[in-house]
Computed example of a mutant assay.
Amino acid sequence: IQNYPMAGPFLTYIINDKANNRKLILEGFTFAPATNKRDYMFELEAILKTVQFN
């Protein structure tokens, strides 16, 4: 995509994984031009908060 800005709301979570001596970064963004993004952000937040690493 040229000359088209991609901006919008986003979420970032940084998880300190002490057991494995690392930091995990979860990122998600909503790109939906000309629409309300509120519901998308709630859904994205629910997804990111339920991620499990084994």
Results as ranks from 00 to 15, higher is better:
P9N: 08
D17W: 03
P5D: 15
G8V: 01
P33G: 12
N21F: 01
A7L: 11
K49A: 04
L11K: 06
Y4W: 13
Y40E: 07
I47E: 09
P9H: 07
F42E: 12
T35S: 10
L48D: 06
L26R: 00
I25H: 00
A32P: 01
D39T: 15
L11T: 01
G28E: 00
I1W: 14
I47V: 15
E43N: 10
L26C: 02
K49C: 00
N21M: 07
F31S: 10
P33W: 03
G8S: 10
K18W: 06
E27N: 14
A19G: 06
L24P: 05
T12C: 04
I1S: 15
N20C: 02
E43T: 00
F31E: 07
N3F: 07
K18Q: 12
N36H: 13
D17M: 00
F42P: 05
E27H: 08
M6E: 12
E45R: 02
E45L: 08
G8T: 01
D39Y: 04
I25D: 02
N54Y: 03
T12P: 06
Q52V: 08
K49T: 12
R38Y: 13
D17S: 10
L24C: 04
F53M: 07
A32N: 13
A7H: 09
F42T: 10
N3R: 11
M6T: 12
K18G: 08
Q2P: 04
F10G: 15
I47F: 09
G28S: 00
A32Q: 13
V51R: 04
E27D: 14
F53L: 07
T12S: 02
E45V: 00
L26Q: 00
D17Q: 03
Q2W: 11
L24K: 11
V51W: 06
I14W: 05
E43G: 02
I1D: 15
E27F: 07
A46L: 06
A19P: 04
I25Q: 08
P33V: 10
T12H: 01
A34P: 00
R22V: 09
L24H: 11
A19T: 04
T12K: 02
